[in-house]
Design a protein around this nucleic acid. Sequence first.
DNA 1: GGGTTTTGTTTAGGAGCGGCACAAAGTCAC
DNA 2: GTGACTTTGTGCCGCTCCTAAACAAAACCC
Lengths: 398, 398
Amino acid sequence: MPDRGRTLLGPALALVHTGRAPTRSALTAALDVTRATAGAVAAELAALGLVTVDPNPVGTGRGRPSHRLGITPDGPVVLAAQLHADGLSVALVGLGGDLGEPVHHPLPADRAPEPMFRAIAEAGAALVRSTHRRCLGAALALPNPVTEPDGTALAALHFGWPSGTPVAALFAEHLNAADLGPRVRHPLRTAVANDANLAALAEHRHGAGRDARHLLLVTSGHRGVGGALVVDGRLHTGSTGLALEVGHLTVDRCGRDCPCGNRGCLNVETDPQALLAAAGRTPAPDLPLLAQASTLTREADHDPRARKAVDEVAKLLAIGLAGLANILNPDRIVLSGLHRDLLAAAPDHLRSVVADRSLWGRICQVSIVPADLEYAELVGAAELAWQPYLTDPQLAAR
Amino acid sequence: MPDRGRTLLGPALALVHTGRAPTRSALTAALDVTRATAGAVAAELAALGLVTVDPNPVGTGRGRPSHRLGITPDGPVVLAAQLHADGLSVALVGLGGDLGEPVHHPLPADRAPEPMFRAIAEAGAALVRSTHRRCLGAALALPNPVTEPDGTALAALHFGWPSGTPVAALFAEHLNAADLGPRVRHPLRTAVANDANLAALAEHRHGAGRDARHLLLVTSGHRGVGGALVVDGRLHTGSTGLALEVGHLTVDRCGRDCPCGNRGCLNVETDPQALLAAAGRTPAPDLPLLAQASTLTREADHDPRARKAVDEVAKLLAIGLAGLANILNPDRIVLSGLHRDLLAAAPDHLRSVVADRSLWGRICQVSIVPADLEYAELVGAAELAWQPYLTDPQLAAR
DNA sequence: GGGTTTTGTTTAGGAGCGGCACAAAGTCAC
DNA sequence: GTGACTTTGTGCCGCTCCTAAACAAAACCC
């Protein structure tokens, strides 16, 4: 029999976590319970060491001032890890998206799964040992699709891993085999997910998608276009975790060839290479493509050729976004990576093409905004690691 | 303060409703509660007149035989209504998707909103008065997008209604103004939604999508291609109810022109006209296009030109489905209308193109099946009308 | 016919939350 | 500055839903 007790504890912690319950009074309203219950819930979260009730009250006009609720400073943390094309990052993250200073490591020379996961585990364990705060869980962001619920990687092209690599199991095993120090829940709860999905989760809870109900995130980075959807606070990952593979949406029927066999895919039409080509530039071999393309977007104001290229690629991106809006009908689209730069360089153009090209775009305007978290993937990984505790905070009892 | 009591009542009724709790013992397992609780819940649902515990037990091998749970015969009903291009249908539907004989009416000569909704209300009220069973709610399926949460129609092309017609309010007002007889909850709870969405809901609960977690329904009828998605038992209607407008997905970059300004949209490439044209047939003016196209698909086995046309259009449909699968990653696709006929005529071809064209189609096969409800829209409308009672069965107390 | 297995019911008890009353801590009006 | 008002926090009681455990019932097996 499951424990059905304290159904309000999780929602209450989630509210404090996302900053939506700044005071006990606000918590009472948000949970739609009596003040007595909200007080008891806050007290229990405080007893678990997760939430702190500020002893000095803050006045808000008339009436008795309320006490601020906040995440306990020095409370427990989770380990967030991210593997990307040219390195690995780890950070400790408290509740409230409170990201510690990330630590970056180069990748090991041998990029087979075993050495990679050993490196991740070592970097993570070292960070966990270095803090005096309790560590309750860990999660890893990977730059490739991760199947659900089995947690295997598909098409880890950068690393040459075979499809079906059991990344969830590898992460759990290597991390729990490492020396994690004394202040760790053993075995550590672990999880692995795709980086775009985690970035969307982070932007929804702590970034540009705070008050959105249906958040679509689209990003362009080193490995093509990625997408993710958050619906009512939960990731839409599809039935096997492979949803939102938006890279092969057709945006230009006369466009360039894509390895997938089609033409004019979003992937090849809005990536750094396409932008540089549209401006007639040959990529410098010594600089990352993404950085060159990003620079180009900032030159649009004074360089007509850059302006033309930006407008052209922004239009193709907008056509793709319009297609997605027709299917998903989000109320917010968050753009990240190079797409964020395109939005910054041609905001009106991009937004108006989306409105024109989507069926109801002129009637139901969707807000299109830039991502605003520097380390969205790490924050998102932390969200994933925190998730069990946000669902049932009593798991945090020592 | 909301009533938090009896949280199990709704889930229990939903299980009986969808046939997943055939006995009290099964209910115990499905709800993950003690036998005492399941017994109490079943007793309360019986007291509400919704569920009946069969007095004669059925043996299932060893042990004391369990009693069957079933929807109370002669229990309450809801009114389901559907407006389509050439008529209006109404039916009374009990729990369990128990559809009574539908009644069909022609449309009034004047197709403005007022006369149309008066006709719907009259037909519905007559049906409601004709039964001795209690009527608890009503819902209407419309062949055009319906916005949420305000319940207005967009682009009701068949009827020439202006965008923004408040269809939800019109339905509620006209129906409740009609003479509904004595056995009706007053005012009747009403709801209005898009027909494709309701068909998907019906197929998920009582049809070809029974055990699917992520169900994508795609249909082709008189008014183009419609789509709908059911995720974990709930409709994904997007932030404003306009999701799954899949008609303008590009499936052929050299295809025919579409009124939307693009080329090769799913709408124009897989509609009855396209199929007839692919077979080199000129549509007979005296027969509905849909019927002619449907007949054509059944001739594919002995007519090579029909075969070629079916394969061609099935391929274009499959390309569209593959694109949707990349974005939504459903575990089941249900095809309805002409698309159902295409699946019947070229099942292997269609399935293999979807598998080849979707990114992970060969790894995570999605099952593609034909719709199997004759009146899916009406059953779906009933689901919508039942929804409040499935959430809180105590609303059914007289 | 007596064990075994599975199901249904009864009873007692616990936990969570609402309701209420009262206390506390501020603002506002004068 | 004083009292009225407003808003917040807390203790206590009771209701309700659910679990647990024991018992009873109805089939099967040998």
